[in-house]
Design a protein around this nucleic acid. Structure first.
Length: 845
DNA sequence: AGCACGCCGACT
DNA sequence: GTCGGCGTGCTC
């Protein structure tokens, strides 16, 4: 990039001119800020939180965020000049910078890593960034004046369809170094848009739709048409279906909006060629619609009205009362009690007071349904921040929050990074969810904790919602620090489901198991299907079987990068590693001995689906797990099919435990409860309890009492008793006792350190040294390990884990983290461990 | 994170 | 004899 800065030699000093320096945050994992010099004539242009372009190292030009401006020249080195100023207003606000500093500190990572995670990549410019003409831009129709350099770029981009240019090329074209302002201006006028990688090139999602040709809308014309089609039953079928789906007469606009063509062509009862014939003969007309990535309901509801139950009204009032004394309130409400309506009320309330609102949901729960519902209430004031969104869409939300266009944002984990500066309320729904915690890469933050800190900084209230609150959260309410509001009644008077435990060991000994189904579960499924009711089956493992085994020589295929056996996936006929993604074809014969006796061992969702299809051929079984929902809209499709009762049985992993409510589900089966309970982790019981209760909550809606069948080899395990009676409190009392006794959160804080090394011995040695250094600084009792985790090698790295327990008190915690960092640095500075990677995870989940 | 500088194996 | 492997250190 031709970004050699032709710095104009300073004017003779008329007045005492100040020399300004800016500390910038580079979007890199570097421990400190870098100081650049502001050119005199740009002194008025520096904005804290604005982006500037600097040269970093010999080659790289990067955009970064100004974190501070001062007059202290660096003593050790000559500061380079800032090359360009992109923004005249902050893109990162002051409250954000404060929050990001806290995050870097608390989660033991660099500010650069936080910035990197926070900014949508279209805000992170580099010389490799590319621009493309906006598909919606038409040269004649632009309402904005276009400057000379802008026109130059426009012309260059118009030479061919979809042409793109890098910033370097733009710089060369214009022959000046300061072209970012031009690009920014073009972006604001919606003439171009920006992307980082060729893969991000804008390709609008187009849906083919059909509608009735307008001259048939007339009732008499339609009569005639029916007459003409009398001898063409297939075409008549299509037409009937169309009229059935689109209320042409009740609503004139309905026909204009039309119907997705696929709704007609993919129906098993209709002939696709008949659809095409109708189009060819001009009865139906086909048209394309550019749709949002987020499939929204295209039938806006005229008015939103929900009637609050008495319990809901009471809960809402109580929350408001508690907020007058406390900043944080937990809404403990059983599934199906109608928490969302309460949220909507509270959001409306906060907006009326002039503040901003952030509504966080776990990824899996941020569905089209909830967005549509919120859209109907909040209209264009609502921004949606979802990980499935393209970068351009994310920048739009970011800028919308900055400009005040979006007052409410509903979003996933990363929405805590958005540039709010006037928050009145944050809602964290399903606050116990582990998906609020980011594992990889840094920052390893928990959005719930970040939200609480952000609310604290901005003087906002926080409402946490859950049917099964995290033990840490409930503890805070018990200690009187946070408020607690209970919402125990299910909406519409549906009782809690009846839960039955079935002993798989007994059945197995008596040879009564049908594959992995107990007779109880199987007959109950049959019974429910006979009643036209639906069934959800939960199995917390995907694939067909966790491994295969040669019956003759005992060979078991293992992953070459990880210390795990390869899972068998029948559908794709592959062996796959669930940790690194390695896959191989399923062998016909054993590569070790040539035997063909390869047997699958254990079971996952795929096998459950398979077995059920064989045992109950009449049932329509669908599977929902990572493998069937990878494609873009397949998740929506599976949900829609189940909702419309196209499928009767839904088999799935965790995905089926949360999110959607289905009115017709009357039975939930947990195929193997034991694999969930027996997990080597202090949170295993909590996770199991949450999972059982959440999945049970899927059973029985709209007045129907549901049933849950839990299959286990040992029905006497203590946790079941609490699940059956849905006794959160008793579970909590038991669990908190355990946590106190063994010194786990909320009584202590945990930092998990992981040492990774390609060499097993070096990993162990580095971990031993790290442990010694930790013990020296924190004491023996604070350090657990080192220990190789159950899966001790992932992606060719051998792992060692050390758990550090620290007192919760703030000053102690801060000090302890400094000690941990010091210990880590000792190991890093050892040259034999140069290739070791050390990772700190604060508050791991 | 990149990228340059710097020391040891298979090639014209 | 050189080209290039990636190990280590630095970037205001």
């Amino acid at each position: 990039m031709s970004l050699t800065f032709d710095f104009v030699s300073p004017e003779p000093a008329a007045t005492d001119r100040v020399t300004l320096f800016a500390d910038v945050i580079l979007p890199l994992p570097l421990p400190k800020l870098y100081t650049y010099r502001v050119p005199y004539e740009m002194n008025d242009e520096v904005v804290i939180g604005g982006r500037v372009i600097v040269q970093f190292g010999a080659k790289k030009t990067l955009s970064c965020i100004v974190a501070a401006v001062h007059e202290t020249p660096p003593a050790q080195y000559q500061a380079k000049y800032i090359l360009e100023f992109i923004d005249d207003a902050p893109v990162v606000t002051q409250p954000q910078l404060k929050l990001f500093r806290w995050m870097a500190d608390y989660y033991m990572c660099t500010l650069g890593e936080v910035i990197n995670a926070a900014l949508p990549s279209a805000l992170k410019l580099s010389s490799e960034s590319r621009i493309q003409l906006h598909p919606a831009f038409v040269a004649e129709g632009s309402p904005y004046p276009i400057s000379e350099p802008e026109q130059q770029i426009l012309t260059a981009l118009s030479t061919e369809d979809g042409k793109s240019m890098t910033f370097t090329e733009v710089g060369e074209l214009l022959g000046v170094s300061s072209f970012h302002k031009v690009i920014k201006s073009l972006m604001q006028k919606d003439i171009i848009f920006l992307f980082e990688h060729l893969a991000d090139k804008y390709s609008p999602k187009v849906v083919k739709k059909v509608r009735l040709a307008h001259h048939f809308i007339e009732e008499s014309a339609l009569e005639t048409l029916f007459g003409q089609l009398a001898g063409r039953p297939k075409q008549l079928d299509v037409l009937m279906r169309y009229l059935q789906r689109v209320p042409v007469y009740q609503n004139i606009h309905a026909n204009h909006r039309g119907l997705e063509k696929s709704a007609l062509t993919s129906s098993p009862h209709l002939s696709p060629s008949a659809v095409n014939t109708l189009i060819k003969n001009g009865v139906l007309e086909q048209f394309d619609v550019i749709v949002s990535r987020f499939p929204l309901d295209d039938e806006p509801e005229a008015k939103l009205h929900f009637t609050f139950s008495e319990a809901q009204t009471t809960a809402r009032d109580e929350i408001l009362t508690q907020f007058s004394q406390r900043d944080i309130v937990l809404l403990h409400g059983v599934t199906g009690a109608g928490k969302t309506e309460i949220y909507i009320e509270l959001i409306r309330n906060a907006l009326d007071g002039g503040g901003q609102v952030l509504y966080l949901l776990p990824e899996i729960a941020l569905t089209a349904q909830i967005v549509t519902r919120l859209m109907r209430v909040f209209g264009t004031r609502l921004g949606v921040y979802h990980s499935k969104f393209s970068d351009n869409e994310r920048v739009e939300v970011w800028n919308g929050v900055l400009s005040g266009r979006f007052q409410v944002v509903v979003g996933v984990r990363s929405a805590v990074f958005l540039p709010f500066d006037n928050l009145a309320l944050i809602i964290v729904d399903e606050e116990h969810e582990s998906s609020y915690k980011q594992y990889e890469p840094a920052p390893r933050y928990n959005a719930r904790e970040v939200a609480l800190m952000m609310a604290n900084y901005q003087g906002a209230k926080t409402l946490l919602g859950s049917a099964t609150p995290a033990v840490e959260t409930y503890y805070q309410t018990r200690a009187g620090r946070w408020g607690l509001v209970q919402l125990t009644k299910r909406f519409g008077e549906a009782g809690l489901p009846e839960i039955e435990l079935v002993d798989t060991r007994k059945h197995r000994e008596a040879k009564k198991m049908h594959n992995h189904f107990t007779p109880e579960l199987l007959s109950e499924i049959e019974r429910k299907l006979g009643l036209q009711e639906q069934v959800i089956l939960f199995q917390n493992r995907r694939g067909y079987s966790p491994f295969i085994n040669c019956l003759d020589c005992g060979w078991i295929p293992k992953c070459k990068n990880c210390a795990v056996s390869l899972s068998y996936h029948k559908h794709s006929h592959e062996l796959r590693c669930h940790y690194c993604g390695y896959n191989d074809r399923m062998p016909v014969e054993c590569p070790a001995c040539g035997s063909r006796a390869l047997k699958t061992v254990g079971f996952g969702t795929e096998k459950i689906e398979d077995d059920l299809k064989i045992m109950l051929p009449a049932a329509n079984v669908q599977r929902m797990d990572l493998d069937t929902t990878r494609a873009k809209n397949s998740y929506q499709q599976i949900i829609a099919d189940f909702e419309n009762q196209v499928t009767n049985v839904l088999v799935g992993t965790q995905m089926v435990t949360k999110g959607l409510d289905f009115a017709n589900v009357s039975l939930v089966g947990i195929i193997n409860a034991d694999s969930i309970i027996h997990y080597p982790d202090f949170r295993a019981h909590e996770r199991a309890f949450q999972m059982f209760v959440q999945v049970s909550g899927r059973a029985g809606r709209k007045g129907k009492k549901g049933k849950v069948i839990i299959q286990t080899a040992d029905p006497t395990q203590v946790i079941f008793d609490k699940v059956i009676r849905n006794d959160y409190l008793e579970f909590y009392e038991y669990e908190i006792g355990q946590r106190r006794e063994y010194g786990f959160p909320p009584f202590m804080r945990v930092i998990r350190l992981t040492v990774k090394h390609v060499d097993q011995l070096l990993a162990e040695q580095a971990a031993i040294l790290l442990t010694q250094e930790l013990v020296e600084r924190l004491g023996r009792e604070a350090v657990l390990g080192p220990e190789a985790p159950y899966i001790f090698r992932i992606r060719n790295f051998y792992l060692q884990e050390i758990t550090v327990k620290i007192d919760r008190e703030h000053t102690v915690l801060k000090q302890a983290k400094a000690h941990v960092l010091a210990a880590m640095n000792v190991v890093k500075d050892q040259k034999e461990f140069k290739q070791a990677r050390l990772v700190a995870d604060v508050d791991p989940m």
